[in-house]
């Protein structure tokens, strides 16, 4: 049925104002990523849509905060790993000043820890760079309208790992040092504790991550976004 020929079905039930059929102003988007090629790619995809417009780009977390203040975009597409300030730190900073800012993370990181940090910082969407073009466009429209959008696999990862006991901040510190090639003795010296304490931490880490050895633990932790290599 032709949309323009229809009238509200029940005047008493539905609004009686004029339905706006003209296109509304486009969704104004800020693209934040330290890779120019990625920014160009996103711009190329977005600008095929009549209802969207890229109004600016930023190549770091700090630049994103500045550009957000200047441009006040409707949507920010935010990478996570960038120079000087990470994406989740930039999200928190933007949301602190502008609590209604709508931010979608567009990242290569599928790990639950990355996603949870970003969502807790105030991101309304979390998409992987492997997502389909259609998903990105749908997420932009959805978040612009006040919704949230998550990749289902990321959501499942969050759920699966929240069930498990998460490693403590101290245990993450120990594992980060192990990931950078330090022995238990070296880690103990750096943290000012005994080697037995580090062994106990490592044992707890293995149990919490379901790891069989320290290499396995480092691999799992990096994949989940608990540590950065």
């Amino acid at each position: 049925m032709n949309k323009e020929t229809r009238a509200p079905i029940i005047p008493a039930l539905f609004h009686t104002g004029t339905v706006c059929l003209s296109p509304s102003s486009p969704i104004r988007i800020l693209v934040v990523d330290d890779h120019p090629f990625l920014r160009e790619g996103v711009r190329a995809v977005v600008e095929t849509q009549a209802d969207m417009q890229v109004v600016g780009e930023a190549d770091s977390g700090t630049d994103a905060i500045i550009r957000y203040r200047e441009l006040l975009p409707d949507i920010v597409l935010m990478d996570l790993q960038m120079p000087d300030l990470s994406g989740d730190q930039a999200i928190a900073a933007i949301r602190e000043r502008s609590p209604k800012a709508r931010i979608i993370v567009l990242t290569t990181y599928a790990g639950d820890a990355h996603a949870l940090r970003a969502l807790r910082a105030g991101a309304a969407g979390y998409l992987l760079k492997t997502s389909l073009r259609k998903e990105l466009l749908q997420a932009i429209r959805s978040v612009h309208a006040g919704g949230k959008h998550l990749d289902a696999d990321v959501a499942t990862d969050i759920a699966l790992h929240l069930v498990a006991d998460a490693p403590s901040e101290r245990e993450i510190s120990v594992l980060s040092l192990a990931a950078h090639g330090n022995s238990n003795k070296q880690i103990a010296a750096k943290l000012g504790v005994s080697e037995d304490t580090i062994k106990a931490h490592m044992k707890a880490i293995f149990a919490k991550l379901g790891a069989s050895d320290r290499t396995h633990a480092v691999t799992i932790a990096a994949k989940r976004g608990l540590i950065d290599l």
Partner: peptide, 29 residues
């Protein structure tokens, strides 16, 4: 079917289930 994500996202405050609130999960397995 989504690995417990519905209850977990609600429990963690990612989705509060306020009236009319929406959260999309794309490409579920």
């Amino acid at each position: 079917a989504v690995g417990g994500a519905v209850m977990r996202l609600r429990g963690d405050g990612v989705f509060n289930a306020a009236p009319g609130e929406i959260l999309a999960l794309s490409t579920p397995r």
